[in-house]
Design a binder for these strands. Structure first.
Lengths: 253, 253
DNA sequence: CACTAGCCTTTGTCCGACAAACAGCGGATT
DNA sequence: AATCCGCTGTTTGTCGGACAAAGGCTAGTG
């Protein structure tokens, strides 16, 4: 151990591939490369950065995974604004890997879905309402198919979030929504009238949105999410149990 | 154009580097490689997958960026559960690049912070309360330094979220929190008593948590977030304006 | 027993090469 | 003339080998 005080802090030399990634990222984030614009070819980047193609390619992989750049059918690179679908599934994955409990999920979903319907009542457009109506109609028709009801119910909540016109809220609720979906199927199977109750709740919420009736909307959403919890408990699982790894299959794609 | 119906769908041949990444990812999410366990060396992976080292390295970059694997000081690879800090900054970036408005941010923050303090009142441990108290003390001392007040206020909300013991809620609110922080500094500078009002609100919220007084906690949180909006409007900006790209610098690191 | 020097391994980077896939272009066909 | 087809140059994905720098490990030293 050195007997004098440290004069300098450890300086971190970033690997070249990382610097390549950061340089391109800066250009995109600063808006100097707009979403949709092409980045150069690999050889072009090799020329500009003065590093080897392998190095450039490693940097490209990083950005690609980050969603900042993408390739069209011709595999050419172009910039793009990362869309939340991609991020939401990563977040779901993180939540599962950190073994969060169903209770944490339930409590957060309650908050977010309540907020969503409250804003949706205020701001849903005719188009949003039509999409929700279409969804409810499909769900009615699928009442005997648990998997389909679960999927459609998941879509209902997604459409609801869209109707808020609030993208921040949409992003915030999406990971939770993704993890809810597989359990809903289970509930439809195990709880008598489970699917019917979902159809009823969604119908009532749709009506409430149509009539801009916030109070009714909130009541039905609360009931709907509580129903989920009750159904969940009836399947014999514990609310304080960690969300199963098998849930990732549904959440990720 | 072909005159017969398409019999086959386009089959997607995944590049080798992607298959490497997916293979390792599968092992981790399935739990067969636990967080903290070492992946092999690059040569080891080369041997197992039967591909070139460059290919393996590209796959590794993908996973590294995804937060599923990481390297310790010796640069050896090991699996890890992606932690939300990383994800939250990505989400913030996505929000800014999609040019969400301050209004979307404000409305969502209101919902999430209200939810956070409500749960914090119920579940904050002594340790959580001590951390919050420490934070408030520091903020009082820093009342003349807008940047520091803003940073400490941001930390206050983070500690609050931790006190909920709800990791899903923590993850949901973090991207919003990151984007709030830079504006808070601006507000402290431009609004008379801005910093003092923050200190007051945080002190009252801390007291409310100590006394498990949910009503008071909610009142002060509402006032606190509304104060942010009022302060924001007083700086001359429009609430329906997109969040500035310059905000990323603070949110990302 | 602690400590240091040197060896071995591993990573980051480079070079060069080649097959497959694609875009663009010019010629052939109707 | 417009359309289709095949050719060619370009680009990506992958491979093999190579080397310096940095870190870990081991054996020898005090």
């Amino acid at each position: 151990m050195s007997d004098h005080q440290d004069r300098f802090e450890r300086l971190h030399v970033a690997p070249a591939y990382q610097m390549v990634a950061e340089a391109i990222e800066r250009e995109i984030v600063a808006g100097r490369i707009r979403p949709g614009e092409p980045i150069g070819t690999e050889s072009e980047l090799v020329r500009q950065f003065g590093v080897n193609r392998s190095t450039v390619r490693e940097g490209i992989r990083v950005l690609e995974q980050g969603g900042l750049i993408s390739r069209d059918t011709s595999r050419r690179l172009f910039a793009c604004a990362p869309h939340h679908n991609r991020l939401a599934s990563r977040m779901s994955r993180a939540l599962v890997l950190q073994e969060v409990t169903f209770r944490e999920l339930y409590e957060t979903a309650m908050v977010l879905e309540i907020a969503a319907i409250e804003q949706a009542v205020e701001r849903a457009t005719k188009k949003d309402i039509a999409a929700l109506a279409e969804n409810v109609k499909k769900t009615e028709a699928a009442i005997d198919d648990p998997a389909l009801v679960a999927e459609l119910n998941s879509e209902f909540h997604l459409l609801l979030a869209k109707a808020t016109q609030n993208r921040v809220l949409q992003l915030a609720r999406e990971p939770t929504g993704l993890l809810f979906f597989p359990t809903t199927e289970l509930i439809c199977q195990k709880v008598p009238n489970g699917a019917a109750r979902i159809v009823e709740a969604n119908t009532m919420m749709l009506n409430a949105i149509r009539e801009r009736d916030k109070k009714s909307a909130l009541t039905w959403m609360r009931r709907h999410v509580e129903d989920w919890r009750k159904g969940f408990e009836r399947t014999g699982k514990e609310l304080d149990q960690a969300v199963d790894k098998s849930y990732l299959r549904a959440a990720i794609r």
